[in-house]
């Protein structure tokens, strides 16, 4: 699959190394997926064997990576146009589109089968749906057509804790839905803060991100609206017994800070202040999600240790 004779009588010989294929998996995105899926697995009531838990997590990670590879395959044309993505393996020529497509398809199929064989077919189905959603609905359909692309497409990033929960319980319950909703509502302000910083890049590539289509003012308002919805939603795990008092305190404090930073984005008077506030909100949003899920994880581990 790497050395291909071309119609024009030349031959393409790949110089892609293993690192390029790992880059296709979007390791940074994958790490967030692994982390949130892990939390979904750990907080779920389960007697699954630890080895099978590890295999399930591996399958979810590979599935997320495969979706990333397929996304890079389809988006190679626009990745070439944006500074942030121009050095990715396909636009830089290190990996051919065909290689990336085959790589993504094989890993997608393999990860779904692995998850089904290791734990259950509900979670495998959810993983397969998530990959299809990310590649088919978000990448191929919404991303280039509507400024609501990341609102709806964000669901793909929100599924991992639900998959993790389903892998352990063979069910999808309220707790899993709440974890899903937190990431779902977190995604727009997170990405729009970045989009405000990179709007020229998106405009050059013709991607209708909200700042490009609706302008800065609307985007800043939308960021604030989503943040105001997200902050109380972040506290819901406390109310349904998924999180304890530490989680309650963390989620309230972080939620207030999130809204505060969204407010600075909304009220920024000039471009310098706006860029600074967007950068701060973007960085904080990552910390916010990490803190909430890490606290859930920590509380559960403490509970297990005390209970043991």
């Amino acid at each position: 699959m790497t050395d291909v004779s071309r119609a024009d009588g030349t031959i393409h010989i790949s110089t892609a190394g293993p690192g390029d294929f790992i880059a296709l998996l979007k390791p940074r995105v994958m790490s967030l997926v692994v982390f949130t899926a892990l939390v979904g697995m750990v907080v779920a009531p389960s007697v699954t064997h630890p080895v099978l838990k590890a295999v399930a997590l591996l399958a979810i990670a590979v599935g997320a990576g495969a979706a990333g590879a397929l996304n890079m395959w389809y988006d190679a044309d626009i990745d070439r146009l944006m500074r942030r993505t121009a050095s990715r393996p396909i636009p830089s020529g290190r990996v051919s589109p065909g290689e990336a497509l085959a790589f993504g398809l094989v890993l997608s199929t393999g990860s779904v089968l692995l998850l089904g064989l290791a734990v259950n077919w509900l979670s495998a189905g959810l993983l397969g749906f998530t990959i299809l959603f990310y590649v088919g609905i978000y990448t191929m359909w919404l991303k280039r057509r509507t400024p609501q692309n990341i609102v709806i497409g964000g669901a793909a990033g929100a599924f991992p804790p639900m998959i993790g929960w389903a892998a352990m319980t063979n069910s999808v319950s309220l707790e899993a839905i709440v974890l899903f909703l937190i990431i779902f509502m977190w995604t727009p302000p997170h990405f729009w803060a970045l989009a405000l910083l990179k709007s020229e890049d998106y405009a050059r590539a013709g991607i209708p991100m909200l700042p490009v289509v609706a302008g800065e003012t609307t985007t800043r308002t939308q960021i604030l609206v989503y943040s105001v919805v997200l902050a109380p939603l972040g506290v819901v795990p406390l109310l349904i017994g998924l999180g304890g008092p530490v989680y309650g305190a963390v989620s309230i404090l972080m939620g207030v800070a999130f809204v505060g930073l969204a407010l600075t984005v909304k009220l920024a008077r000039d471009q310098t202040a706006l860029r600074l506030s967007c950068r701060r909100l973007f960085a904080f949003s990552i910390l916010y999600l990490f803190a909430l899920f890490a606290t859930l994880l920590g509380e559960r581990i403490v509970h297990l240790l005390i209970g043991a």
Binding site: S5, R6, G9, T10, I11, I13, G93, R94, S96
Partner: peptide, 14 residues
Amino acid sequence: MAEHTRPTGDGIRL
């Protein structure tokens, strides 16, 4: 650009 193209034929040396 790490991709290489060259004429096909016998004796291609990588």
